[in-house]
Write a protein that binds this DNA or RNA. Sequence first.
DNA 1: ACCTGAACACCGTTCAAGT
DNA 2: ACCTGAACACCGTTCAAGT
Lengths: 192, 192
Amino acid sequence: MSLSPALITETARSLLIRYGLPDVSMRRLAKELGVAPGALYYHVSSKQVLLTQVAQEILAPLRAEAADARTLMLRLRELMLPLRDSGDLLLLAYALDPRLPPAHVLPAQLRAQGWSEAEASRTTAAVMRFALGAIATEQNQRLLDAEQDTAVQNTADQNPGEAADEDPLAVEAEQIYLHGLEVLLARPSLRA
Amino acid sequence: MSLSPALITETARSLLIRYGLPDVSMRRLAKELGVAPGALYYHVSSKQVLLTQVAQEILAPLRAEAADARTLMLRLRELMLPLRDSGDLLLLAYALDPRLPPAHVLPAQLRAQGWSEAEASRTTAAVMRFALGAIATEQNQRLLDAEQDTAVQNTADQNPGEAADEDPLAVEAEQIYLHGLEVLLARPSLRA
DNA sequence: ACCTGAACACCGTTCAAGT
DNA sequence: ACCTGAACACCGTTCAAGT
């Protein structure tokens, strides 16, 4: 089988899922496809557009879902959180396309709930920015914790006193996310 | 004068201000200091800790300011927005230290306004995530617009029909930021 | 049309060896 | 103690040349 834009983005996506964004390099991608690095540039104009394409594909399932704003925002977090370091990716894709799912349906949904057009579009932008910031923060915290864990591994082996707790940081992160959504998506009449 | 952690972070900061984050590499930094790249690692353990140190220094002025939450968050945006691509930097520094200014004083301020401790800490986390997401988004949009501008330069020269407008995207971005702050920092009694 | 080989101009980090 | 030189293992991108 020969190369194609679709095959390249699909392979990039699989690398992202398996190893995280830092391991999605053009050279690694080429190796995975059994091809010279330069070959990719016959099908894809740059790494940046390739990655935003990948982001769009990962979020594509959200286009088919008919759920309310809150649920869609929760799904966004579920989809992206496991992809290591993908926060930057999302931030870039959103800057390039402010209609990135789930932002593509939020304004219409909020309008249907009685929001004005100006309020609906401002709130969509605000809630997306909050979500992207929150997801990137959570991913960074996980990475940093993982580094610290491996660094402390030996000391922990010699000192198994404290039990492994339920990762209160992760639980807290989810509460923060829920809280932000609740406040930002609250009906405007409640604030007037 | 010889190398020191302080001199290195100060030079990194000046590179960041002058050229943006992509131009702050250890090798570029070494060249700027007239030293071999390896020399930096005698004073600094990694690029990551160096950059978070730089972020802390850039935000240090906020530690001295005695302003309300909203003003501090606006100052945060003013400080970071001009530093090209520094959003990632901020996201990393905040993940490493959730008490990064202005987060270090927000909980106490909110408590003084009658918020409960739980509400104050959750709101601080939410508003910081929103701000970091918003700043990163704005910086990315600027970068992408700049790329497009240089690409369209020639066509624009030949076609000077439309006047250069007031950059409505930037104005809109500020409104979104103000709106997010207003909603997230609204007194909890107004939502109960 | 599609791809290779090779190059250009970079990265972060380590480490023996020098002073 | 502090730094150099050189290496290791990478980057994104371009482009003549091949098929």
